[in-house]
Design a protein around this nucleic acid. Structure first.
Lengths: 247, 247
DNA sequence: CGTAGCCTACTGGTCCGACCAGTGCACTAG
DNA sequence: CTAGTGCACTGGTCGGACCAGTAGGCTACG
């Protein structure tokens, strides 16, 4: 004992090394969006591996949303601009295997969008205010199908105005996961017409608060709005958890 | 014109179909954690595809953190319990390619952990309060290396006490991404000793607020604590964005 | 001379068969 | 009965093959 300290060696697969290298090139910016990787047959020469190994690496990169392959493309795989698709996928998986309840997701949305409003109330530009107002107008004239589009547009502007890209992406992801979950239980929807009218009124109040620069008020109003909108979908015993965020 | 409406056909690759099927089995619970998939050679019979195709599907599932393969394992791939590893990976990628600033990440942490505190102040059990207290005690006796472990432990209990698994996972992910980013610029660290003392004092105040059931106070104190701790790492022009959350 | 259409040289998707280095278990030799 | 060995599997990697696409050059026709 007391000899040289050996470290356990971690056998690392060939395809993982390839993933690491290409990933590094993309994340460091050496390969920007739109750039092309060499063809699989050329990559197998560059990496000195077989095509199977190259392909397994590309599959991983593709599942992470970093590249895309198209058959017949004379160039190799294309480097994609970042998209929250992978984040969305992970969160959807989380929602299913961890059995996330709707109330947990709605809670999360209340937290994130409220934070976005808090920041947006301070940092929004005049132009963004106009965009928000336009979105609310569209909500008024919308029917059942286009209503949520306008709703999304409103909150998208808010998220952008927050100046925090992470908040922007996450609000987007969470919102779509919630919508996906709601879609499954649309049958249980209460009176939609009344919900829409109420939601519009709330949005106008929120917009006014943002315009006035009162972030805390906007956040508070928004949480109330979300609660009102989703409470009908949430089992009664879970509503208490949502109310905890209303204060 | 006016003929039957045709929909564009999306060519779907064989390995994607396999991914879908296995994914569905896992997410629906038909295959729980610890369950074993058949061996690759058997799967290629079941799906009527070649082993390459099976392997590409498994690579994708593996990169999503759903299964793990080990060479020599007499059973097939193992179904893993959900881990936020995939979520973590996606967010790290986002941080790099979207060039997330440290302040954006810290901001996100302020928002999420504050929300966790807000909920925990209402829902925490006596036992969890004791865990939090124990973590703070460990912070007092810790040196530079173990300090952040105790810090993490404290906030982990809080996140658990919030009763929201999504918040729990996301706080964890964001925290480790922040730590990973900080580690790169540890050279720029200000006086750590003073930071630690101050952080401990703040944690005690937060704990007291949680014990008293005053969520808003706990959240406010926490945001201040995070700000004090990280402000030194953040470029001056970005601090304003953080201060917006202090109110 | 210009252009419409074909043709070829690529691409990725899939399949097959093979070999290697591990692992676990049954079987055997002590 | 136990210790040790070998076998029958596993996944990882390789090489070659074929197919269905695509893009762009080339040819033949107007």
């Amino acid at each position: 004992m007391g000899g040289p300290r050996f470290e356990p060696v971690r056998t690392v697969r060939a395809y993982e090394r390839i993933v690491e290298q290409i990933e590094e090139a993309i994340e460091s910016g050496a390969l920007g969006p739109g750039a092309r990787l060499a063809s699989e047959r050329e990559l197998m020469v560059q990496f000195s591996v077989s095509r199977s190994t190259v392909r397994e690496a590309l599959r991983v990169l593709q599942s992470r949303g970093l590249v895309r392959s198209r058959p017949g493309d004379p160039n190799g795989a294309e480097v994609l601009p970042f998209s929250p698709a992978a984040l969305h996928k992970s969160m959807t998986t989380l929602a299913r295997v961890a059995e996330l309840s709707l109330s947990e997701l709605v809670q999360f949305r209340m937290v994130l969008d409220a934070a976005a409003l808090l920041l947006a109330a301070r940092l929004r530009t005049e132009e963004q205010l106009e965009e928000m107002a336009a979105a609310v107008e569209r909500m008024k004239e919308a029917d059942r199908d286009t209503f949520s589009d306008a709703d999304v547009a409103f909150h998208d502007v808010v998220a952008r105005a927050s100046g925090n890209k992470l908040i922007q992406v996450c609000t987007d992801v969470v919102r779509s996961v919630v919508v996906g979950l709601i879609a499954g239980k649309i049958a249980a929807a209460p009176d939609e017409e009344a919900l829409m009218r109420r939601s519009i009124a709330h949005h106008e109040e929120v917009l006014a608060a943002v315009r006035a620069g009162d972030g805390p008020l906007a956040a508070r109003l928004f949480r109330r709005s979300v609660y009102d909108y989703y409470a009908g979908y949430v089992p009664e015993e879970e509503r208490i958890a949502l109310q905890a965020l209303l204060e």
